[in-house]
Write a protein that binds this DNA or RNA. Structure first.
Length: 293
DNA sequence: CGTACGACCTGCCCGC
DNA sequence: TGCGGGCAGGTCGTAC
């Protein structure tokens, strides 16, 4: 589901709800999401304060006062919900996995992890498809973590430039779309924003990387940055189940030029072609066959 | 090594 | 109304 703009939207929205707060309870309703939830996580998070919340690629990083980083990935369908527990809800007691009792409200389907803060705020991780993931790692090992260590540059960070992109792609035989979706080349792009950025840069998703020239890498870099910034401003894209923290919808889906627009007229001025959909390495690619070359 | 593809899950939407 | 097939924002392991 969420690509960089959606994760950034969640990250920004969550900060005001969690920063500086102490975690009273960690509870999980199953042993695994995409992978097993880490052993001992409960003891590492309970009692600690969330000091920072940041995003790296599509990962959310919660820095805890216990000197751990709590890492979360939303997969395709993951969501974080915030609830303020009323006194009434707080009084209902349910058994936890240890056989003792503490306060857990009845949950929605696919609520997998619940974190309660001392001030009665609760965040709930909900993920129907369970492609998401959670881990916890020592603060000083964060850069060695297998999910993070191979990530390419942040597209909205200082280490991203046309030159950097060209350097990592100039010898690749694969198509530019496949390369841009590869998190080790650039972190945070997914199917939507790659399609949108390639349309904006007028580059065909099927073009082999090594055939792209310096000027095009410049257009492409600018397009990626522009599309992502615009999407973040719009609060991300709400397709199916993406909702911002607090339940609001993003509205970047109203700004799509190609994604899911097959059969529609190309929005570029004086281009009268229609957007096509094709399967590219197993996933839908949307593009204009006339103005993307 | 780089690249391509199936697998992992559930839900929804469409056509018959 | 019901069911089967195709589709979905991601990533990894495997096979070339």
């Amino acid at each position: 589901m969420p690509e960089l703009p959606e994760v950034e939207t969640v990250c920004r929205g969550l900060r005001s709800h969690v920063l500086g707060k102490r975690i009273a309870r960690y509870h999980q309703f199953r042993e695994d999401l995409r992978w097993p939830l880490p052993f001992g996580i409960k003891d590492k998070v309970e009692g600690s304060i969330i000091e920072e919340l940041n995003r790296r690629g599509k990962f959310l990083l919660f820095k805890l006062s216990s000197d751990y980083i709590f890492i979360m990935h939303l997969g395709m369908s993951g969501r974080i919900l915030v609830t303020e527990l009323s006194r009434k809800e707080n009084e209902s007691k349910h058994p936890n996995e240890m056989g003792s009792f503490f306060k857990i409200k009845s949950t929605e389907p696919h609520d997998h992890v619940v974190i309660d803060f001392c001030d009665q705020t609760r965040i709930t991780y909900n993920d129907p498809r369970r492609f998401g993931a959670i881990d916890i790692v020592d603060l000083d090992m964060i850069n060695q973590h297998k999910w993070l260590s191979k990530l390419g540059p942040e597209p909205l960070g200082n280490s991203f430039s046309p030159e950097v992109l060209q350097l990592s792609l100039k010898n690749k035989r694969s198509c530019i779309k496949t390369a841009l979706i590869d998190q080790s080349i650039l972190s945070g792009l997914g199917n939507i924003y790659v399609c949108e950025a390639l349309w904006a840069a007028r580059i065909s998703p099927f073009r082999p990387c090594y055939k792209i020239d310096g000027l095009e890498f410049q257009y492409l870099t600018e397009s990626v940055i522009k599309v992502l910034k615009k999407a973040i401003q719009a609060g991300g894209s709400s397709l199916r189940d993406f909702k911002k923290v607090g339940g609001g919808l993003g509205y970047f889906q109203n700004c799509f030029n190609v994604y899911s627009k097959d059969g529609c007229k190309c929005k570029r001025e004086r281009c009268n072609s229609r957007i096509q959909r094709e399967i590219q390495s197993g996933r839908s690619t949307f593009f204009c066959p006339k103005c993307q070359l």
